[in-house]
Design a protein around this nucleic acid. Sequence first.
RNA 1: GGAGAGGUGGCUGAGUGGUCGAAAGCGGCGGUCUCGAAAACCGUUGUACGUGUGAGCGUACCCUGGGUUCGAAUCCCAGCCUCUCCGCCA
Length: 449
Amino acid sequence: MTLARRMHILGNQTVGPAYHSVQQTGISMLDIKFIRENPDLVKTAVANKNEKADIDHILTLDQRRREIIGEVESLKAARNRATGEIAHKKKAGERADDAIAQMKEVSLKIGQLDEQLREVEADLHTAMSWVPNIPHQSVPVGKDESANQVVREWGTIPKPNFKVLPHWEIGARLGILDIEAATRVSGAGFYILKGLGSRLERALVNFMLDMHTTDGYTEVSVPHLVTEDTMYGTGQLPKLDDDMYRERNDGPYLIPTAEVPITNMFKGQILDHADLPIYLVGHTPCYRREAGSAGKDTRGMIRVHQFSKVEMVKIVRPETGYDELESLVAQAEKVLQGLELPYRVSALATGDLSFAAAKCYDLELWAAGVERYLEISSVSIFEDFQARRMNCRYRDEDRTVKFPYTLNGSGLALARLIPAILENYQNEDGTVTIPERLVPYMGGIGKIG
RNA sequence: GGAGAGGUGGCUGAGUGGUCGAAAGCGGCGGUCUCGAAAACCGUUGUACGUGUGAGCGUACCCUGGGUUCGAAUCCCAGCCUCUCCGCCA
């Protein structure tokens, strides 16, 4: 299931905290000016994404905000002038009782207006935080995944002349996957890999990290616990609150993907244009409550609360953004091609697109045992949506400060990749062949069983 | 966990209630000089919001959030973070 679908299931939204540390007047996710000038375009985007942000309410608050600012700032200007005069008089040894008394009144009024402004801005910010990113014009319009478009397929789907066992069965028989033990330890929705199964996961991680770092990505090892405003920065909050684990009530969150800590490394920073593009790759566990998906994919390791994933992140100049998206997809595909696993690439429809994404490709690979396509990678571009939320900028050659584009893509998710290998590389005698490129990473072992 | 010190512009670092968005230096940018470069010298150099067609004008920002005051980088309170020492520990 995509992030988008998971979010739709969540439904009821509660108003989250104010995310003060990132909050800045006027900057939220979309530029308030953009909403002001293109209300209909934004409304259409909200509808196409099956979201329900109230744009008219935002416009009203924005109008009110500017009215108050006009009023309070002229009062402040007057006060600043008077204050300068008072200072002058005091210095000259004169009294300034009248002016001080007068300014006392003015300051009181300013305090009241500031309070009103604070409230309006808090409301505005909350409302803005629920406005999703606008889909790119190339994204197919459609209410759900049925409108997704397959853009290409690679490899041929094998048609074995024997019954391929689902991964949980072959895994159990080979003694490399122990779902029961995982349930004993942690409850439903976990997996334990043993022996060559665990070795296989490690081999895959190393294979992928080696490939990506060879291709110019810098490997990072990041925290799995992050603050609330970090979650806000990449767009998980406020919307996905119910789908994430959290340490107590106001403690840090467990990351649902390495995208979160890696992208937020640049939160609040002004990068130099020479630093761009930034390519990073990291391997972390991903923790997901999977709230709302109870009863789906209950068997095996397809849908679990914790899984391992290699994630790629890019921070790039806006003008290169969509080229970077294509090369990022290609990078994820390269892993599957290296493992000789057949897959297809789909462009997600507007209704299947995640809250923060402008465009997204899913890589789905065929799993012979469960006889269906599994989403193994999601490659997205967020344009400047995340950069705005994080307040991450870069200084361009002309010295102006701009928002970069951010992208990320799985490269890849282990809890989908391992089942695919166990099923697609399964032999009639119940053994599993190791993909050729992986054999060196398996210490020369070419077959399990 | 205990005890101290501290968080100022891209960086270093002054500033302890009043024309302070903030000295100075470094760095950056522009210029003079040069065949070119370095050095030297001169000039310039924050971000956001509001307003205006525009030059501009106004407001806010010295970790964050409150408070005191006619007026806060400067005083008070809370929080976050950093550093040093002690203790504990993978």
